[in-house]
């Protein structure tokens, strides 16, 4: 499809420069190494393959999270969402989860979604923590606005981080936002934010080489199967 760049300039939201997220590696409960890194825009089609099966999983609100995440990633890919970023979690190249977010303005971050494909390993918790780390420590923001679409999210974010309730409607459906401040972030950091840098080159190369996506049945089984946690 031919792209009219003159028109695109009108359609695309203006982008602010963003500091990169330095990749890190986390040892999971099963001893495997989770590489957390920033996804590249050109990797979005691959990410969408992993999100697609979640559109039809009602369990734990994966469908609403998946549907919104799909649209947000597409928005980033097509330059229709402003200042978005996406972090991915990979084990031996395999995609096990992702988080996305955006800079609402220079000082405030707007947390979007957290999607764990491998469950029971706290992949979602690690990725959410990385997202907050990026907003506060690397993008230098003062606060992040957050909502949860599932009870699990509420337990993980609002309670574990002790987030402040606000009456600011969040972009995701208008629910009142909870706020992570710099102070709350650094208070929570010792028990919630971990990871080693730099990532050993071999591990990083493996992660950057290709995002491997499990097939749709495997993703459904991991998320919604009998053993899903």
């Amino acid at each position: 499809m031919a792209v009219d760049m003159e028109l695109e300039a009108v359609l695309r939201p203006p982008e602010a420069p963003q500091a990169p997220y330095p990749p890190k590696v986390i040892t999971l409960a099963n001893g495997k190494r989770l590489v957390v890194r920033e996804a590249r825009r050109e990797e979005v089609p691959t990410l969408l393959e992993a999100v697609h099966p979640t559109l039809f999983i009602h369990k734990d609100y994966y469908d609403i999270v998946g549907a919104r995440l799909y649209a947000e990633l597409l928005g980033w890919y097509t330059h229709r969402t402003q200042n978005e970023f996406c972090l991915v979690g990979q084990i031996e190249g395999l995609l096990v989860g992702m988080v996305n977010s955006r800079m609402y303005n220079a000082k405030t971050g707007m947390s979007l979604h957290t999607l764990a494909i491998d469950r029971g390993l706290r992949v979602g918790a690690h990725l959410f923590a990385a997202k907050m780390e990026h907003h506060i420590e690397y993008l230098g923001q003062d606060e992040v606005l957050i909502v949860a679409e599932s009870p699990i999210g509420f337990r993980r974010w609002m309670i574990e981080y002790g987030l402040e309730p606000t009456d600011i409607p969040h972009e995701l459906g208008g629910a009142p936002s909870y706020r992570l401040t710099r102070e709350l972030y650094f208070k929570s950091k010792p028990r919630l934010v971990v990871g080693d840098r730099p990532v050993p080159q071999e591990l990083l190369d493996e992660a950057l080489r290709e995002i491997v996506v499990a097939d749709e049945d495997a993703i459904r089984e991991k998320i919604a199967g009998l053993k899903g946690r």
């Binding site: 040892t27 999971l28 409960a29």
Partner: peptide, 23 residues
């Protein structure tokens, strides 16, 4: 069995990352 996931001592006790893995 409900849980079929293997875990390691490193992942739930020895590693500094276990503070999140095994809170």
């Amino acid at each position: 069995a409900h849980v079929e996931m293997l875990i390691t001592k490193e992942g739930i006790l020895d590693s500094p990352h276990s503070v999140v893995n095994n809170p």
